[in-house]
Simulated scan of single mutants.
Amino acid sequence: MAFSLDMTSAATLKAEAKALRQEHARAGNPISHGAALEMSAKAHGYRDWNTARALLPERVSAPVQVGSRAKGTYLGHPFRGLVIGVNLMADMQHYQVTVKFDDPVDVVKSEHFSALRQRVTATVDIRGVSLATTSDGEPHMRITRE
């Protein structure tokens, strides 16, 4: 199954249902967990929660896994390295990835000095592309499995 940034997961619908239930409780109109799940599923175009649950993945796929080898670019420089951390963000669509580079990457473009990085952490989407960009619009990190 292919994934996109707007791909909903079962975990996302569950989180939305929990928030919906809390909203209703604050407004003095409490609803059951089941009713919140049904409302969340219908809001995403599914007939009911059971249909949504049967069709949706539990979570969106991670671009890399802890302990795997990775390659890509960091601040425009190619790298290869070891993934030493992957954390799913609260929106269930992004990951905080920590990579230990095989060879340090110089993050400065100046010819007058260097600033080498051996280990970096970046937030990436499910395609492995960071949200943060350089001033010229290039993503800070692009990462894929090696």
Rank of each mutant, 00 (worst) to 15 (best):
K14Y: 06
F3V: 02
F113M: 05
G67V: 15
E58D: 14
A2C: 01
L37K: 13
V97D: 01
E23N: 12
H24W: 08
I84H: 05
R21G: 04
R117K: 07
F113N: 03
A122D: 01
D102C: 04
S110C: 09
N29I: 08
Y46R: 04
D106M: 09
D103F: 11
T98A: 07
V99C: 08
R21N: 05
R80K: 08
K42M: 13
N50K: 13
D91W: 04
V120P: 04
H77Q: 14
S135Y: 00
S32C: 02
K14E: 14
T51I: 10
R47Y: 12
G76F: 02
H24P: 00
R47Q: 14
A43H: 15
A17Y: 09
T133W: 00
G137V: 07
G81T: 09
E111W: 10
R69T: 03
L88W: 01
E146R: 06
A54V: 00
A52M: 07
R119L: 10
T133L: 03
Q22F: 07
L13S: 09
S40M: 04
A36K: 11
T12I: 15
E23I: 05
S32H: 05
H33C: 08
S110V: 10
V64E: 07
I126Y: 01
M39K: 12
F113H: 07
Y46V: 12
G128D: 07
A25I: 03
I126A: 04
A11C: 06
A43G: 15
V97C: 01
D48C: 13
S68I: 00
D103N: 14
H24I: 03
P104A: 09
K71R: 13
P78N: 07
Q96D: 11
H44A: 07
H44F: 10
H44K: 15
V86F: 02
I126D: 02
K100H: 14
M7K: 01
V99W: 06
A10R: 13
A62R: 04
L37C: 12
L55R: 11
M1N: 07
V124L: 10
K100N: 13
A17V: 12
G76V: 02
P63V: 05
A70E: 06
Q93M: 03
V105Q: 10
M1E: 05
W49G: 10
G85I: 00
S68W: 01
K109P: 02
I84C: 08
M92Y: 09
G137T: 09
T123M: 14
H112Q: 10
K42W: 03
L75I: 15
A35P: 00
G76S: 05
P104L: 03
A11H: 03
D6E: 10
A27K: 09
A36L: 11
L116W: 13
N50D: 13
R26M: 05
D103A: 14
V105W: 10
H112K: 13
D102L: 04
N50I: 10
P78Q: 08
I31C: 02
A19I: 07
I31V: 09
E23L: 11
M141T: 14
R69K: 12
S135W: 02
Q118Y: 08
Q96P: 01
